[in-house]
Design a protein around this nucleic acid. Structure first.
Lengths: 192, 192
DNA sequence: GTCTATAATTTGATAGAC
DNA sequence: GTCTATCAAATTATAGAC
């Protein structure tokens, strides 16, 4: 599933570096040497560093939403939707041992190039929209209730990843996941 | 409440800059010019940039815990402790229009100087310990239950701040605060 | 404590050959 | 598409005068 074009390899490496230490912690030379080319060649594919950040974030968001699939397909039980959503974050953290790209970029948002900040906001907007849709489609929740729960789920998962990585304890993420489940059960009225 | 020694002014400025855009987004010259001195003078107070980061994080953590006060004082109702805790995060976000220092540093942890990363972990550890103590002192929760709730509260608040700032909607933080309250009511058995 | 001056390195980016 | 070569600016940090 690794990128096979050089352009994709650059994005793979840049994504990993941002998710490890932030947008300002890598240079075009870092990316170049990891890919096995020179920095001038990186600039051939992406004129500016901001272009790399924007492309990484856009690709990350598209991939993430594609993996989530259609939020309208959860007909019976909102807990299925939440479990699937939590699981995608879990895989993101455990498989790569890295944070969600947009947890990192969101934390640095005051200093990001405009396009990168914009794509970061889009990630959050699209995720909240997915959750809202999945919750309203599968329960009797009002739009306002679904929105409130969606915001909380996304916030807790992003924060949970940060704590889990910083303290190097996978158990922390599982803890957050468990509490989210309990919150859902307390808040949600299933449709069936 | 602004720092009155030059050393403290440097820490004030550096803290604001880190909380806005991250540890790698400011230079010693940025700090110097904001304080009204030269970068060589900054290095007189703090030999390395890592020293600035470590001092900022240590001071931030001490101030934060001092503001929380004694977690053993919540005798009757855990909701009081949680409300006070949430309120300190709210003030941190709304008063300064900036994230929690350690939400930012936690997101960048893979690329921080060792001392800075260490102090960041200490912030999380001390906060979790405070919450655990406040919850066990004021309710019938077991140590494990208190720990689980503490982790979730901290994760949701850190993540909520990031979402709130990134999307520029204070309402998002309030949303998270409200859901945390509901979660506590569903999970906690008050002592009185 | 703060300054000027500067060293040593890194960084984002470009020109032009192949 | 990738390279060598290079630039201009920025960055962390130090030496030494005041």
């Amino acid at each position: 599933m690794e990128g096979n074009t050089k352009r994709e390899e650059i994005l793979d490496v840049a994504e990993a570096m941002i998710r490890n230490a932030g947008f300002n912690a890598f240079s075009t030379r870092d990316v170049a040497s990891a890919v096995g080319i020179k920095s001038a060649s990186v600039h051939y594919h992406f004129p500016t560093k901001a272009d790399i950040g924007a492309a990484v974030t856009e690709r990350y968001t598209d991939r993430f939403l594609k993996q989530l699939g259609d939020p309208g397909r959860f007909k019976g039980d909102p807990r299925e939707a939440v479990a699937l959503y939590v699981n995608l974050f879990r895989e993101t953290l455990v498989r790569d041992d890295k944070l969600c790209l947009c947890a990192v970029l969101g934390a640095e948002i005051g200093g990001l190039p405009l396009e990168v900040g914009g794509h970061t906001r889009t990630f959050f907007d699209r995720n909240l929209a997915w959750l809202k849709k999945a919750l309203t489609a599968s329960s009797k929740m009002s739009a306002a209730e679904a929105n409130a729960l969606a915001v909380h789920i996304l916030a807790a998962l992003e924060g949970g990843m940060i704590l889990s990585k910083a303290l190097d304890k996978e158990k922390i993420f599982e803890n957050v996941a468990t509490m989210l489940k309990r919150l859902c059960e307390a808040v949600v009225a299933p449709r069936r």
